[in-house]
């Protein structure tokens, strides 16, 4: 079993806030993290390796500093890490990103056949969930999104069965490998780093592939290869808010009755 896990370095968006006075983003000290969904995808790939043997390769596209997340993945047990970095990749939207990632996967597979490609369901900075489907479309592989775990895997028969989260519940779905899988977040607990892996990570030096190695069409890369562009950026509109009532513990009924009388029966209908 050879799995490739696509991971992304993202700002910890939960730490990004708006300065209420200047109405601008406050991002001082916002840390960069591995997209949380990708860590669960990595964990799922590592579990398959534990069970069936083989190898886990992690790849990421980003600036040189993104190398640190590959080291982190190695610390959790990944065997190999490749940084896809080139000035020509900069400013890529999801279409141009899936171009680079899918070409890298194809190149990896030439050297050592890839059975599964894992992605997180989405990245927390863009929340698009588009890159996984894009990779599958480009590589003409089956796609299983929103998986809640691999149930069965048969490397001999190239068969995999997963549990997929859908609106009405779950689906147990089978497909042929090689396939692309995107994973939900609450599907597993990401393992702790072990001392040997941490030592390996500390010494680990990721391979770097730029456009020299990947030989991609310049027109499909980065900004040039991105059909979508940002027209405007603005702060979300803030509503003014309605009536504010200070609760008076000495006259509790006053507040409560007022609210109830406003809502019943116009909003809350007795039945």
């Amino acid at each position: 079993m050879h799995s490739v896990v696509c991971i992304k370095q993202v700002p910890d968006v939960t730490e990004v806030k708006i300065d209420p006075e200047t109405n601008t983003l406050v991002r001082v000290g916002v840390p960069s993290i591995v997209n949380p969904y990708d860590m669960n995808a990595l964990e799922e790939a590592l579990r398959l390796k534990d069970q069936y043997g083989g190898k886990v390769t992690v790849i990421t596209m980003g600036p040189p500093m993104a190398e640190e997340i590959l080291n982190k993945a190695v610390g959790h047990g990944a065997d190999e890490g490749i940084l896809l970095s080139d000035r020509a990749f900069a400013g890529a939207d999801t279409l141009a990103t899936s171009y680079v990632l899918s070409t890298a996967v194809a190149k990896i597979s030439e050297e050592e056949k890839v059975d599964l490609i894992f992605c997180g369901k989405q990245a927390i900075d863009g929340d698009t969930a588009q890159v996984g489907p894009g990779i599958a479309a480009r590589l003409k592989m089956p796609l299983l999104t929103y998986i809640n775990g691999v149930q069965e895997c048969d490397p001999e028969q190239n068969k995999i069965v997963v549990k997929r989260k859908v609106k009405s519940g779950y689906e147990i779905t089978q497909t042929q490998m090689p396939a692309v899988i995107t994973s939900n977040r609450d599907i597993n607990d990401v393992r702790y780093e072990t001392m040997p892996d941490l030592i390996k990570a500390a010494r680990f030096k990721a391979k770097v592939w730029g456009n020299k190695e990947l030989q991609l069409d310049q027109k499909q890369l980065g900004l040039n290869g991105s059909p979508t562009m940002v027209r405007d950026i603005f702060a979300p509109e803030e509503k003014q808010g309605g009536e504010k009532i200070h609760f008076n513990p000495d006259k509790p009924e006053e507040t409560v009755d007022m609210i109830v009388n406003k809502l019943v029966p116009s909003v809350v209908v007795p039945n």
Binding site: E238, K239, Q240, G241, G242, E243, K244, I245, H246, F247, P249, P252, E253, T255, V256, D257, I259, V260, N261, K262, V264, V268, P270
Partner: peptide, 28 residues
């Protein structure tokens, strides 16, 4: 409170049970 039509400033442990009770009465 910026998006609320009615905002109640206070301790939920006091307010919520009263609200529940008042709705119960009114609705029945």
């Amino acid at each position: 409170f910026n998006v609320a039509d009615y905002g109640i400033v206070g301790d939920l442990q006091q307010i919520v049970p009263l609200l529940t009770e008042a709705f119960r009465k009114k609705l029945s």
